[in-house]
């Protein structure tokens, strides 16, 4: 049964949103893993090997960009598509994310439908269409 469900890792330091997001994703039909900071997230990713990672940027200790870089440089986690989910919505931020290796970017607050779409695309391996940034 767990093979049918895709697993998504959420890395976000904000507990409230983390939980809400978890509910949301479960309602979509995914299995959800959570990590409350960058380091934990990396560990989980290495061990659990999720299918998609939803990554917040503004985090203490290690910010999302750094996490992404680390993940992308590690063999185990290189292939996992990363969706950045952040309040930062400037062009520079989006570019920084892309440069780090993140395949998708979505701003907070997000449109759940868009998120769902992005996850599906990530799972399929399609790139993000350019217009789907703003919610």
């Amino acid at each position: 049964m767990s093979e049918d469900k895709k697993r998504i890792l959420i890395i976000d330091d904000e507990v409230g949103l983390r939980n809400l997001l978890k509910f949301r994703l479960i309602s979509f039909g995914y299995d959800v893993l959570v990590a409350e900071d960058g380091y934990a997230g990396i560990e989980v990713a290495k061990v659990q090997a999720p299918d998609v990672i939803v990554l917040d940027i503004m985090m203490p200790y290690l910010n999302g960009i750094e996490v992404c870089k680390k993940l992308k440089s590690d063999l185990k986690t290189k292939e996992i598509p990363i969706i950045f989910l952040s309040v930062l919505a400037q062009k520079e931020d989006i570019e920084a994310g892309r440069e780090a290796g993140g395949e998708f970017f979505l701003t907070k607050p997000y449109d759940p439908q868009k998120l769902d779409l992005l996850i599906r695309m990530a799972l399929k391996g399609e790139p993000q269409p350019p217009e789907m940034l703003e919610s």
């Binding site: 809400l20 509910f23 949301r24 309040v87 907070k108 607050p109 997000y110 759940p112």
Partner: peptide
């Protein structure tokens, strides 16, 4: 301003998601 707006958005996104989840009937 940037900082403020980002700060504002952070709780806002949680609020939105919280309300939305319920409004969507997920819960």
């Amino acid at each position: 301003v940037s900082m403020v707006s980002h700060e504002l958005r952070t709780p806002l996104s949680a609020i939105k998601e919280g309300v939305e989840i319920v409004a969507d009937g997920t819960q």
